[in-house]
Amino acid sequence: MKKRTGVVRRTTKARVVTPRRRNPVRTDAAAPPLVTRKEITVQVNGVAQTAEVEVRMTLVDFIRERLGLTGTHVGCEHGVCGACTILLDGAPVRSCLMFAVQAAGQEIMTVEALGTPDRLHPIQEAFRDHHGLQCGFCTPGFLMTTLAFLRERPSPTADEIRVALAGHLCRCTVYQGIVEAVSDAAARLRAGTPTPAPRARGGARE
C-alpha cells in the first residue's frame, strides 16, 4: 500500500451518485462463476507448482506456507515495508498485496533462487562485503528489488539507488551499506562477474 497520511477514514467506497444511462445496450456475456477455492499452477523459481488455494490466501502466505519458501518475509501485510517483495514475471511486487490465485500462470522468483551460501550471487556478495544487512529480515526484499532494478539500470547513481529502494524499510537501518552494496553489485555485474544460474527451487515439496 502506498504510505498514506491520515488514518483510514472509510472502508469501502460509498456509491451515492446514480449515473444517467445513455445508449442502453444489453450485455449478453455470461458472468463467470464465483469461487472460494481454486486450483492454480504457478512457476516458482523455475518449477511448476500446482495447488488448490482458498481465494483469500495472500501470495506471500502461499509462498511461505504452501511452498515452504520461507526466505520471503512478512513484515507489515499492508504493502509498506517491502520485506515480502518478490519478482512477478521479472518485476518487483509486494506479495502481501496479491492473492495467490492472481498469480496463476505467472512466474515468480524468490530469494531462494538467487544464490547459495556457498556460491552467493554478486548482489548478495556485495551486500555481505558492505554490511548491507544486520538482522537480515528485510534483506530478501531488498535483494529482489535490486536484482530487477539493476537489470533495468546497470549503472545507477547513488541517488537513483536510494529512490529505487525507498519502498523498503530496514529498521537496523543499514541503508548506507545497502546503497554502497548495490552500487558495487552493479559494477560487479557490469564487469561480468559470473552469476550462479537461478536455482530451480520450487519449494519444500518439489
Binding site: 456475456a29 455470461a30 463467470p32 469461487v35 472460494t36 482458498e54 483469500r56 495472500t58 492472481q102
Partner: peptide
Amino acid sequence: MKPAPFQYAAPESVEETVALLH
C-alpha cells in the same frame, strides 16, 4: 491481518466484468 472470506471471479473481458457487476 488476514482478509475475511470472499467469493472471487476473474473475468477475462469487459463484457464478463459488466455481467458480474450487474
